[in-house]
């Protein structure tokens, strides 16, 4: 079986401080894979290693392998920018470019990456992306408006549209509903549920209930280690590791360092 993302002994450190300590993941294609764990345990860092956005941080050191569809993206002859188009990212704070209109927000990536030739192509791609992100209906008569007129949930869907326009294969989402109201959250979760038919989705979430609602597989990260991973139903019904059990039940305090297995 081909995995969308696989890591082999991935280690990430900031200067001397080790943040991710030798994790091995296998994320299958076209599923929603949730990464859950308490704040500050390295989930965002880990996610950014999947599209090499971590390169922006000059203190970060990465060792080990990250294989995207079988190719190690940290090997030497890799076109980093191509990877970032294939592996798109949605962030915790909805961040459509504030100085560009809704239309332009999606168009700019296409233009600057020279991904379309004609105005018609651009138009249709922008509308296609908005449609895919379940946003077209809500904005189609005001594409020249600025994102500041959108709600948090709509902004986030605009960001998703911006990413989808690049025609990626994998979507990385870093706590995408952390700053969105409950209705917007529901819309985004429904959207992800739809999108997983075509895209592999890796979702970092601070809320185990979100993982249980929409993911197929779950990985529990604690203090930089992958404590447990597996099908969502099993992890939430009968977790094997004591830490996982405590975390999903809401009784894990950040200082815990128990290595016991429940069975």
């Amino acid at each position: 079986m081909r995995y969308a993302i696989e890591t082999r002994n991935l280690r990430i450190s900031y200067g001397k401080k080790e943040v991710i300590m030798g994790v091995n993941f296998k994320i299958p294609e076209k599923v929603v894979f949730a990464l859950m764990g308490p704040s500050g345990c390295g989930k965002s860092t880990l996610l950014r290693s999947f599209n090499r956005l971590l390169d922006l941080n000059k203190d970060a050191n990465v060792s080990g392998q990250v294989l995207v569809f079988g190719r190690n993206i940290y090997s030497d002859n890799v076109d980093v920018m191509e990877i970032r188009r294939q592996v798109g990212m949605v962030f915790q704070y909805p961040n459509p470019f504030p100085h560009l209109s809704i239309y332009e927000n999606i168009a700019i990536g296409l233009r600057l990456n020279k991904m379309v030739q004609t105005k018609e192509e651009l138009d249709s791609r922008v509308k296609w992306a908005l449609e895919k992100a379940s946003l077209l209906e809500e904005v189609e008569d005001r594409l020249d408006d600025f994102p500041s007129s959108l709600s948090g949930g709509q902004k986030q869907r605009l960001v998703i549209a911006r990413v989808l326009a690049m025609k990626p294969k994998i979507l990385l989402l870093d706590e995408p509903t952390a700053n969105v109201d409950p209705v917007g959250t529901k819309n985004i979760e429904n959207l992800l549920f739809e999108l997983k038919k075509e895209y592999t989705i890796v979702l970092v979430t601070h809320e185990p209930a979100q993982a249980s609602r929409i993911s197929d597989f779950v990985g529990f990260i604690y203090l930089g280690e992958l404590v447990e991973s597996g099908p969502t139903a099993r992890i939430f019904e009968n977790p094997q590791h004591e830490l996982t059990d405590r975390y999903v039940r809401g009784i894990l305090s950040i200082g815990d360092k128990n290595g016991r297995n429940t069975n």
Binding site: L53, L56, M81, R84, M89, F91, Y93, N95, I108, N113
Partner: peptide, 20 residues
Amino acid sequence: TYREASFSLGLNCFKTAFRI
């Protein structure tokens, strides 16, 4: 976050700085 967003779209340093 806007810097991150721009790079995550596959844009390089120059395009990010000058166009975004």
